[in-house]
């Protein structure tokens, strides 16, 4: 479904990604972890073309992301993305947030979009919040709305960039529960997170990044059993002790 082939990227002279390669099959859940600044967000943003890259290739469902002439809006519409800071649009109600791209990108009519939105709000347990504005919701609720908003586009895959790291501890689980359910239903997911409980439970593979390189890419059991690299071991011991 998603293949990343020797992707390198520079911000000016600074190399953020160094020949990164990995792949995500249909229905697979891949967790990406690694220290701050290792390039996780940049890599995940390259996958739907939010960040350009200079070398290598990325294909999603057979379509090359970096190639000239690729219809990026169309490609992006088929990949859902969830951000650390939710990024709901503050001036729109929860319902309008979920309907915007449905009507403007998929050309669904308003009634159809509204119906789909309510279905998904029900699924994340927030149907009663539909008429509210994002600022009237808690962080956990906002992130669940953001997930519903991404799912409303009927994506073929979902990208998550640290979806729980801006949340208070008591709200982390309500978001993780939604994500676990999604994974068990067979959604293809790439998740940047340090929630190793989540990784253990649903991830097929874990990717460890450091300094712009993919240092480990292993089956979840193997990764937690015996990560080969020293850096990965150190990193794991740090985040697992608390």
């Amino acid at each position: 479904m998603i293949t990343v082939d020797k992707v390198s990227k520079w911000f000016g002279d600074f190399q953020v990604l160094d020949k990164c390669s990995t792949r995500v099959a249909k229905g697979e859940v891949v967790v990406i972890c690694g220290p701050s600044g290792s390039g996780k967000s940049t890599l995940i943003k390259c996958i739907n073309g939010l960040e350009p890259f200079q070398q290598g290739a990325i294909t999603v469902n057979g379509i090359s992301v970096g190639a000239e002439g690729t219809n990026l809006p169309k490609l992006r519409a088929s990949i859902g993305m969830v951000f650390q800071n939710f990024e709901l649009f503050p001036h729109m109600t929860v319902l309008d947030n979920i309907c915007l791209a449905q009507t403007k990108v998929l050309n669904r009519n308003r009634a159809e979009a509204g119906e789909r939105a309510m279905q998904l709000l029900n699924r994340v347990g927030l149907a009663d919040q539909a008429p509210k504005h994002p600022a009237q919701l808690s962080g956990g609720q906002q992130q669940r709305v953001a997930i519903a908003r991404a799912l409303a586009m009927d994506p073929i895959a979902m990208l998550f960039d640290e979806p729980t790291s801006a949340l208070d501890p008591e709200m982390i689980n309500e978001v993780l529960d939604v994500m676990v359910k999604l994974a068990l239903e067979g959604m293809t997911m790439m998740v940047v997170t340090h929630e190793m409980g989540f990784a253990r439970k649903v991830a097929d593979r874990v990717v460890f990044m450091d300094g712009g390189r993919i240092e480990e890419d292993a089956k979840t059991d193997e990764f937690f059993g015996a990560p080969r690299g020293e850096r990965a071991q150190m990193f794991l011991s740090k985040i697992l002790t608390h």
Binding site: K45, N48, L50, P73, K74, R76, A77, S78, I79, G80, M81, F83, E87, L88, F89, L100, A101, K104, V105, L106, A146, R149, A150, M153
Partner: peptide, 9 residues
């Protein structure tokens, strides 16, 4: 980013 990611031009 969020707006672009959902396919808006």
């Amino acid at each position: 980013y969020a707006a672009l990611a959902m396919g808006l031009t």
